[in-house]
Every structure is written in C-alpha cells, then in structure tokens.
Amino acid sequence: MRVFVTGATGWIGSAVVDQLLEAGHEVTGLARSGDSAAALERKGARARRGDLDDLDSIRTGATEADAVVHLANKHDFANPAVTNQTERNAVRAIGDVLAGSHRPFVLASALALLAPGRVATEQDRSPAHGPDSLRGGSENLALGFVERGVGTVVVRFAPTVHGEGDHGFVAGLVATARAKGVSAYLGDGINRWAAIHRSDAGRIVRLALDKRVPGGTVLHATAETGIPARDIAGVIGRGLRLPGVSIPAEQGGEHFGWLGRFFGADMAASSDATSSLLGWTPSGPGLVEDLDSGCYYR
C-alpha cells in the first residue's frame, strides 16, 4: 500500500513510518526541510517537500496515495487560533481529495476535554466542533467525510506518548521541575493522564491500516488508563531529587506556563475496544518505568 504521512519525522510519525516500512508499505512523508527529507530517505521512504500551510503539496500527496495518515500539527500553544485553523485546512484538503474513493484516512486526535472526571472510551464523541474549537474541530470534520466516501479512522493519542527522546508534555514537566526546584502538581493532583509508549502508538496506526478498519471507527492509543498527576510529579521529583509539592490550581499558569492547563486536566481513557478490534496489546514500558530509567534526565 502507498501511504502518505504528514508529520512523518515527528515524535509519533517517525515510529509510524518505521512500522509501515517494516510491514512492507511504500511510504511518502511530508518533509518541511532538507534534513527531514534526508531522514526519510535514509529509512527507505520517499519525501515530499512541504508543510501544513502548503495545501497543494498535501493534496498531491493524498492524490497519489492509497491511504493517508495525518499526524502533523503546529502545536503552537501560544497561538491556538492559528494552530486550529491550519489543522482544519489540512484535514479539509485531504478529505476533499479522498472523497468518493473509500481510501483510508487515519487522523491523529487528542483526549483533552473528552470526558473530564471519568474514563473516556472510544464511544465518546468529541465536543469540539468548528474552526474555533480544539484542533479546529478536525475530528468531527474528518468523521463527517465518511458520508462522502472517505474511510476516516480517528486515533486519539494519550496526552503522554513517552519514550527516550520525548520532547512533549512529560519532557516539559521535567524541564519545569528543574527550573523551579520542585516537582509540582495542581491541587490534590488526583486528575489522571492516560499514557502509551511511542512504539505501541506507532503499532496502532499501522494495524488500523493493515486490518482495514472501517471508516467511522475511533481508536484509543492508550496503554495505561490514567496515572494521577501527583504520582507523575512524584516520580519526576524522585528522578531529579527534588521535593514533590502541591500548588494551587489558580497558580498553574504562573508555574507551568502553557503546560499548566494540560497538567491540571483529567484525561483518563481506556483502549478496550481498540485492543479487541485490532488484536493489540501494549508491549512497551509504562510511563513510570520510562521515567525511572533516567532517559528524561540526561
């Protein structure tokens, strides 16, 4: 299968590309730079130059592919409106190209705000609608393409996709603890984060294509249902030999910056339906094991 991947050299995308190549697929990745293109070509993938603002390149990549995996996102938390609109534009461009073809379209989505206070499942529907909502409402937009003959499959990734080399949320928590001299959590710290190792996340995306998952399916890339924030802070504190402390929720922005609104959120989610559908079980280390390995503190 010829697979076009956006975000192909990113944290999750590089694991997905490795999985697809190992399974014998022909991969073309969207590459923003010469270095990114070279990294893809060294793996045996093809590179298509462009970025999320280059809709013509995205449309061409989708046109030439048997399946599209959209993982790229600007993640500019200082300018969410720009990030959300760019995401929506890219998803719409891909959907328009694939309309009527019934080709698979695997879309990366998130668990944020999905089911605060309880464990989210694949049956929960995203409350994000429209260009001003989280990720530009791209999940609901893409699922709407199913009626137009697109094989949309949504993969909601855990807030922490962890492993050596991670530069995401957990790496940000470690950096904040170093800078502040304490490993903090907000309030009582009982809010939970689902977690998954990068290798397991990559495998879920590959299985979604290999098993021809029906359009309209929602999958959860979570291996651990929910780890309390205070436990995460405690492990980081142990690794850095810093005290774990609670700070008032209203001070989250001051202490953590943009990360505060995420670390105070409750984002627990199960993957029972995903495991059953794909025949998938996680094999990578858990978040605490990864943190205890020392790879986040080097």
Rank of each mutant, 00 (worst) to 15 (best):
T6M: 01
W11V: 05
S14N: 06
L21D: 07
V27L: 01
L30D: 05
D35K: 09
L40V: 11
E41I: 10
E41V: 15
R42I: 10
K43M: 09
D54V: 03
T63H: 08
E64L: 14
D66Y: 14
L71S: 02
A72W: 02
H75L: 15
A78H: 15
V82Q: 13
T86K: 09
T86M: 13
T86E: 13
N89M: 11
A90G: 07
R92K: 14
A93P: 09
I94N: 08
G95A: 14
D96F: 12
G100W: 11
S109R: 00
L113R: 05
A115L: 02
G117T: 02
E122D: 02
Q123E: 09
H129Q: 13
H129D: 12
G130R: 11
D132M: 13
D132N: 14
D132R: 11
S133P: 13
L134T: 07
G137Q: 10
N140L: 14
A142K: 12
L143G: 05
F145A: 14
R148E: 15
G149V: 14
V150A: 15
F157I: 03
F157D: 00
F157S: 03
H162T: 00
G165P: 08
H167F: 10
A171W: 01
G172E: 12
G172V: 10
G172H: 10
R178V: 04
A179P: 07
K180W: 08
K180N: 07
G181V: 05
V182S: 08
S183W: 08
A184M: 04
Y185G: 02
Y185P: 00
R192W: 08
R192E: 12
A195T: 15
A201L: 03
A208H: 04
V213D: 07
G215I: 07
G215L: 04
G216W: 01
G216R: 00
V218R: 11
G226I: 09
A229G: 06
D231H: 15
D231I: 15
G234H: 07
L240D: 01
G244L: 03
G244V: 10
G244N: 10
E250W: 14
E250H: 14
E254M: 15
F256L: 12
G257C: 09
F262L: 14
A273P: 03
T274C: 00
S275E: 12
L278N: 03
L278M: 05
T281Y: 01
S283E: 15
G284D: 02
P285F: 13
L287I: 11
L287R: 08
E289N: 12
D292G: 03
R298H: 07
